[in-house]
């Protein structure tokens, strides 16, 4: 048997404690969501609910259309991420592979745009959306977020690291630029793309401020906004709040469990290395 030394034991204990601290709020949220109002507020707090109940969830679904919120979030996230990825890929290819006058200058200007803080763009974006007549529509949540200079920058650097000889080989093999991009570059860049896609999806899913600004009606709310509104309705009933929060968080956790392998390899394979 392999000898286990003291150092390893200490390390594992530390890691376990760290893990527990990280996960504790989630567990507490889930536990609290199954308690009654009285038990939730009792002092000292109980660990396990005396009689676990799903009533709070029933209440949450009755009071607020979480399923609708969920559907909206899903539509916005999928479309935002899909379109952003498509634009990012094309843009990164253009600025890494194609040659045209002014290419590097245009790219520098684009990169310097990253310096403008997001908050400064909110007002202009808002007026644009309103003028386009898109106020209070899902499109208003999607259109401003369909490209990303930052991801383009990362992906372009990755594309630049792919040897020229592959491009020339493909060209000689009869491939057009378009075919080369989708048959060779994109598959090679898959780990980077997965990472970028997940980061983007996460940002979309959690985006809050913008949706409060451009969406009014219940029908067009996304989950974070919906949850925010739900806090008003639930008042100080923490067990109900916790149920609402669980509804919002659980899909993301499930997604992570399914994609864990890809996320980890994507990040560790240096997908984000510049």
């Amino acid at each position: 048997m392999k000898k286990i030394n003291l150092g390893t034991i200490v390390l594992y204990i530390l890691l376990a404690v760290g893990g527990l601290i990280m996960i504790f709020p989630f567990i507490w949220m889930l536990i609290s969501s199954m308690k009654t109002w009285a038990e939730c507020g009792s002092m000292p707090p109980t660990w396990w609910p005396k009689d676990p109940t799903l009533e709070n969830y029933v209440y949450a679904f009755k009071t607020a259309p979480f399923l609708k919120y969920f559907r909206n979030s899903l539509i916005v996230t999928v479309l935002c991420t899909g379109i952003t990825m498509f634009n990012t890929i094309l843009c990164a290819f253009t600025f890494s592979r194609l040659r045209f006058p002014g290419r590097d200058i245009i790219f520098s200007i684009m990169v310097s745009l990253m310096m403008i803080p997001y908050e400064m763009l909110i007002i202009t974006n808002y007026t644009t959306i309103v003028k386009m007549g898109l106020y209070d529509t899902l499109a208003a949540l999607i259109i401003p977020f369909t490209s990303s200079i930052f991801y383009t920058y990362i992906l372009r650097n990755f594309f630049l690291s792919i040897p020229d000889s592959l491009y020339y080989s493909a060209r000689i093999d009869g491939a057009s630029n378009w075919q080369y991009l989708w048959n060779v570059m994109v598959p090679i860049a898959k780990p980077s793309l997965v990472t970028i896609g997940l980061l983007n999806a996460l940002t979309c899913w959690n985006s809050f401020m913008w949706s409060i600004l451009v969406v009014g009606s219940v029908n067009n709310r996304t989950l974070p906004f919906g949850l925010f509104a739900f806090t008003d309705q639930a008042g100080i009933r923490f067990e109900r709040l916790m149920a609402g929060s669980s509804i919002v968080v659980i899909p993301v956790i499930i997604l992570f469990l399914f994609c864990r392998k890809q996320i980890v390899t994507g990040v560790s394979k240096g997908g984000l290395k510049g």
Binding site: S176, V184, K190
Partner: peptide, 20 residues
């Protein structure tokens, strides 16, 4: 004429095989 229309085959020094 562009490379894809020339009907030539080229083997690079580093072979340039598609890694995936």
């Amino acid at each position: 004429l562009s490379p894809d229309k020339r009907e030539v085959g080229l083997v690079f020094q580093n072979y340039a095989l598609y890694p995936h």
